Computed example of a mutant assay.
Amino acid sequence: MKSKAMKWLTTVPVAIAVAVSLAACGGGAAQSTASATDALKGSDQTSLDKYTTKDVTPLDKLDKSKLGLISEGTLSVGTLSDAPPNIFIDKSGNFTGFDNELLKAMAAKLGLKVEFASTDFSALLAQVQNKKFDVGSSSISTTDKRRESVGFTNGYDFGYMAVVAKNDSKIKGFKDVTADQRIAVVQGTVQDDYVTNTLKIEPVRFPDYNTAYANVKNGQVDAWVAPSQQADGQVKSGDGTAIVEKTINTQNFTAYAVNSKNQALTDALNSALDAVVADGTWSKLVKQWYPDRETPKNWKPGSKASVVPAA
């Protein structure tokens, strides 16, 4: 997708070219194939989730020699470089963010090193299933459609969805998003599914969050329907833009993607997730990366037996 140094797209001609070229892909490979699901319908994780495991195998009972890793002792992870605060590359060139720091802590519980590589979100799940990566880390919403092609761990987070527009735009929320506007999404995301299949609008699809947001700033699109965490990471004072609405999306938890046939690795990661929940690491990282966020009622990370320490 990119080298470690993510270059910010700022020039209008380039933004126009990217927007036009991607808009032309709408009827081809870029077309969303997800079935229609109303990501903003809202529900608690408990009633919707039929995938969370009842409990996990204790860490000391795992057979770590059978994890089916690409390289023994190393967890190969495909991730993004431009989606703070979840998954991004910092100024020192290190992969970081809530999702990646949590995964590092989980890998440590399993005695594994972590090796990150940057990719496009639209390619990530196929790359995990084709064993280019052991794990996909990208705040991935675990939709039923995605479960047809890849496996997932238990959930470690949930999502909000946001609308980003110019300060002087007439778009003030989801109710103002209409078919006569140019609406940006990142290709293959839940937001792509929502705009395409629920709102019945053909969006302008981009390969990454930087490019989508740059086109909002430059006026090449009217608004961006985005994961709110990534919107928070992109929108800066003085940009002339704003997050005009933010709403919770609890239709599907977010989880790490794993090859659907590698149950041993999925089980090990589930055990490690419960362990970092129990020792307070998950709660610490939530406070670090999402200082102003409230966790939805009736939701918790990990297996059904996991215990989140009292604050």
Results as ranks from 00 to 15, higher is better:
residue 101 E to I: 06
residue 26 G to V: 13
residue 133 F to C: 01
residue 129 Q to I: 02
residue 228 S to P: 01
residue 18 V to A: 11
residue 117 A to F: 09
residue 240 G to D: 06
residue 4 K to A: 08
residue 194 Y to P: 10
residue 61 K to Q: 15
residue 138 S to D: 06
residue 22 L to S: 15
residue 146 R to T: 06
residue 209 Y to R: 11
residue 264 A to R: 11
residue 291 P to C: 01
residue 242 A to Q: 02
residue 292 D to Q: 04
residue 25 C to H: 14
residue 117 A to S: 15
residue 134 D to P: 03
residue 136 G to A: 01
residue 275 A to S: 11
residue 37 T to P: 10
residue 125 L to W: 06
residue 54 K to N: 14
residue 186 V to G: 01
residue 59 L to R: 09
residue 99 D to R: 02
residue 223 A to Q: 01
residue 88 F to E: 00
residue 198 T to W: 14
residue 121 F to W: 12
residue 92 S to V: 08
residue 178 T to I: 10
residue 272 A to C: 03
residue 88 F to Y: 12
residue 154 N to M: 03
residue 128 V to W: 04
residue 231 A to G: 07
residue 56 V to E: 02
residue 104 K to C: 09
residue 163 V to P: 02
residue 244 V to W: 02
residue 142 T to C: 06
residue 121 F to V: 13
residue 52 T to H: 10
residue 85 P to D: 06
residue 285 L to M: 07
residue 18 V to K: 13
residue 258 V to I: 15
residue 54 K to Y: 13
residue 273 L to S: 05
residue 11 T to H: 07
residue 169 S to K: 03
residue 179 A to T: 13
residue 311 A to K: 12
residue 24 A to E: 11
residue 2 K to W: 11
residue 307 V to T: 00
residue 303 S to C: 04
residue 247 T to V: 12
residue 168 D to T: 10
residue 130 N to D: 11
residue 205 R to M: 13
residue 216 V to Y: 05
residue 28 G to R: 13
residue 165 A to G: 04
residue 231 A to N: 00
residue 137 S to R: 00
residue 200 K to L: 14
residue 70 I to F: 00
residue 163 V to T: 03
residue 237 S to R: 13
residue 8 W to Q: 10
residue 199 L to I: 13
residue 210 N to P: 05
residue 21 S to M: 13
residue 245 E to H: 02
residue 68 G to P: 03
residue 214 A to H: 02
residue 16 I to H: 11
residue 128 V to S: 00
residue 96 T to D: 05
residue 176 D to I: 09
residue 65 S to Y: 00
residue 115 E to I: 12
residue 287 K to F: 07
residue 14 V to D: 05
residue 57 T to K: 08
residue 72 E to D: 15
residue 165 A to N: 04
residue 36 A to K: 12
residue 95 F to R: 01
residue 5 A to L: 05
residue 57 T to W: 04
residue 67 L to G: 03
residue 81 S to P: 10
residue 233 G to I: 03
residue 280 G to F: 03
residue 152 F to M: 06
residue 228 S to K: 08
residue 224 W to D: 05
residue 110 L to D: 06
residue 226 A to T: 04
residue 279 D to Y: 08
residue 101 E to F: 01
residue 186 V to T: 06
residue 252 N to I: 11
residue 283 S to R: 07
residue 34 A to R: 14
residue 62 L to C: 03
residue 3 S to D: 13
residue 111 G to L: 10
residue 50 K to A: 14
residue 50 K to G: 15
residue 217 K to C: 02
residue 242 A to G: 01
residue 263 Q to P: 07
residue 138 S to G: 04
residue 28 G to M: 10
residue 249 N to L: 10
residue 178 T to Y: 11
residue 19 A to M: 12
residue 231 A to R: 05
residue 107 A to F: 00
residue 94 N to L: 09
residue 67 L to T: 07
residue 208 D to L: 08
residue 263 Q to G: 15
residue 151 G to W: 01
residue 170 K to R: 04
residue 148 E to N: 14
residue 117 A to V: 12
residue 163 V to F: 00
residue 304 K to G: 01
residue 74 T to F: 05
residue 87 I to K: 06
residue 107 A to Q: 08
residue 54 K to D: 14
residue 277 V to K: 04
residue 305 A to V: 00
residue 293 R to D: 07
residue 65 S to N: 11
residue 70 I to R: 12
residue 196 T to A: 14
residue 108 A to I: 00
residue 150 V to W: 01
residue 10 T to W: 08
